[in-house]
Design a binder for these strands. Structure first.
Lengths: 114, 114
DNA sequence: TAAATATATAAGCAAATTATTATATGTTAA
DNA sequence: TTAACATATAATAATTTGCTTATATATTTA
């Protein structure tokens, strides 16, 4: 049950933000695990700038937040975001994506942040 | 409770489809009332081709269906669509938009389909 | 302090999206 | 059967998006 029903215009903006396969998967992974950029680069087999740009869009809307740990920047879901309850409900409708992270570890992929 | 969790790639496609203010509002209105194109033209104060094109995108994904009644074509939510359970859950997170239809009636706006 | 590493940002470009204008199709009514 | 009406479709143009390449910034380590 939602505490507060989101305004439909804002909902459309959030759905558009999440309406991208990469961003949607990122956010679903972040639901359970904070991640650093280098992990996303491996998971999506994509370029670093491309990952950074997706993360920036998510951050600009307040959906995720970053925290630097040394050289690395870890992203997490921003639970204080006004849209968080809405985002959480949407994520609950999606299949778990944790195996994408597990595959990295099982394959022994070199991840610099670890 | 969802019977079937939607594949994340398909979910992203549906979220993108719904990630437009006009289409999202259309679908939310259709949750409670079948509507004809001329009503959408009035509600959104938009051109007829623009409305038709939004409706076509929704129809192409199977989210809505059309049924002709004389000169008019009425749209409704397609409850047999594989994405319907997912769409329904998203709509449940949104505020009711019925007042947009009511305003038309109260203002006595000439709607050709009535 | 210089080199290496991780990430962000900027610039440029191709593809996708959305609106507009023009036209086609289908239905009703004179 | 012709005119009026409702809607769909097509063509075009403007805008947005997401990628790539290049570069800047911040941190660590030698």
């Amino acid at each position: 049950m939602l505490t507060k029903i989101i305004d439909i215009d804002k909902a459309a903006i959030i759905l558009k933000l999440l309406g991208d396969k990469t961003r949607l998967t990122m956010v679903k992974i972040l639901e359970n695990h904070d991640c650093c950029v280098c992990q996303f680069v491996e998971i999506f087999q994509a370029s670093q700038p491309s990952m950074s740009q997706h993360l920036r869009k998510l951050r600009d809307m307040g959906v995720v937040q970053e925290s630097r740990k040394g050289q690395w920047i870890f992203y997490s879901l921003n639970k204080t975001c006004e849209y968080y309850p809405f985002v959480k409900e949407i994520l609950s409708l999606l299949p778990n994506q944790d195996q994408k992270l597990k595959e990295l570890e099982e394959q022994g992929t070199r991840i610099s942040c670890k």
